[in-house]
């Protein structure tokens, strides 16, 4: 399976998928850590993919979304954004609504 197919499968594997650096317990970047916090604060149940564990995924996810940085959040298979966008959505209460809809 090529990288893009693998990414499609990962994104489809859960309603909310966060591509991040490190894990929720041990995030390796403050932006990844903050994204996890925002999701938790929104009541989300989510899966994560540690891009530092796989260089092909790390590069491939940027090509998949045409977005240059990590973290990246996907809800119901759709790219939502990175940490700044999550912060903005959370402040507006929009992230919480998007999470609630997945349940």
């Amino acid at each position: 399976m090529n990288v893009q197919d693998k990414i499609k499968q990962q994104i489809a594997s859960d309603k909310i998928v966060l591509y991040m650096k490190g894990t929720p317990q041990f995030p390796q970047c403050g932006f990844s850590a903050k994204s996890v916090e925002l999701l938790k604060a929104s009541g989300a149940e989510f899966s994560t993919v540690d891009v530092l564990a796989d260089p092909d995924i790390r590069q491939g996810i940027k090509e998949y979304s045409n977005w240059p940085t990590i973290p990246q959040l996907y809800i119901n298979g759709e790219f939502v954004g990175g940490c700044d966008i999550l912060t903005e959505l959370f402040q507006k209460g929009e992230l919480q609504r998007m999470v609630a809809k997945t349940k």
Binding site: C29, G30, P68
Partner: peptide
């Protein structure tokens, strides 16, 4: 030194 700076 942080992976946060990647692609910036």
């Amino acid at each position: 030194v942080s992976s946060c700076f990647e692609d910036r």
